[in-house]
């Protein structure tokens, strides 16, 4: 079982088993694949270079739509216009964070500085958003239902949803510990800025 993220002298660190590393790498890779824009042979290379997608449309996959939401609740045209100018770079930023987190899994001990922790936080969030969409989590009650799937004895043969629920709960647990560690680092830094000497202040 993984040792969760903690904040200490070295910064923010965690340790994973091989199977967990493999699982997380696969999840990061899957979400990167969802985020990669369709390459079109007739695309204007200059538009691509400056990050504009003139033909951007609202994603059909609800999971991708959740990762790249409309910027206006009720003005579809404004949302589309905004998407043309921002969606490509948002896709790239998210995919970059997921790739950076996957790369950090090469080492047995994962040690994060501030930038790496930020990559991990958004990567784990995006994984959870996609899994939640696949699991049909729309309400707090749905979330409770998924949270109740506690261990492998709850998973029958070919029970994909129960398996996904376990994966979701593992990633949720991981992110809970990461956010707590990031908050501890943030508080320590705020303490230093105010002139205090926070103990155990690492990088980050």
């Amino acid at each position: 079982m993984a040792e969760p993220f903690t904040y200490g002298r070295k910064g923010i660190s965690a340790r994973f088993e091989d199977a967990e590393r493999e699982l997380l790498r696969g999840l990061f890779r899957d979400v990167v694949a969802l985020l990669e824009p369709d390459e079109r042979p007739d695309e204007d290379p200059l538009a691509a270079l400056v990050g504009i997608s003139p033909d951007a449309s609202e994603p059909e996959d609800p999971a991708v739509r959740r990762l790249l939401p409309n910027v206006s609740r009720d003005d579809a045209e404004a949302s589309l216009e905004f998407r043309r100018f921002t969606e490509r770079s948002l896709r790239e930023t998210k995919a970059g964070a997921l790739r950076a987190a996957a790369l950090g899994l090469e080492a047995r001990d994962v040690v994060l500085d501030g930038a790496a922790a930020a990559h991990w936080a958004t990567a784990l969030t995006d994984v959870r958003l996609v899994l939640a969409e696949r699991l049909g989590i729309r309400t707090e009650e749905d979330a409770e239902r998924v949270h109740a799937v506690a261990d492998w004895s709850d998973v029958g043969d070919d029970d994909v949803d129960a398996y996904l629920a376990l994966v979701y709960n593992f990633v949720t647990w991981l992110q809970t510990t990461l956010v707590d560690a990031m908050m501890a680092a943030h508080r320590a830094q705020a303490g230093r800025t105010r002139g205090g000497n926070a103990p155990g202040a690492g990088k980050g």
Binding site: R66, P69, V71, S72, R73, L90, T122, T125, R128, L129
Partner: peptide, 18 residues
């Protein structure tokens, strides 16, 4: 607020402008 909305989307939060 549009710049902030993109930042929120990058964090995975669901944000809109109005």
């Amino acid at each position: 607020v549009e710049r902030q909305a993109v930042a929120m989307h990058n964090y995975g939060l669901w944000a809109t402008v109005e």
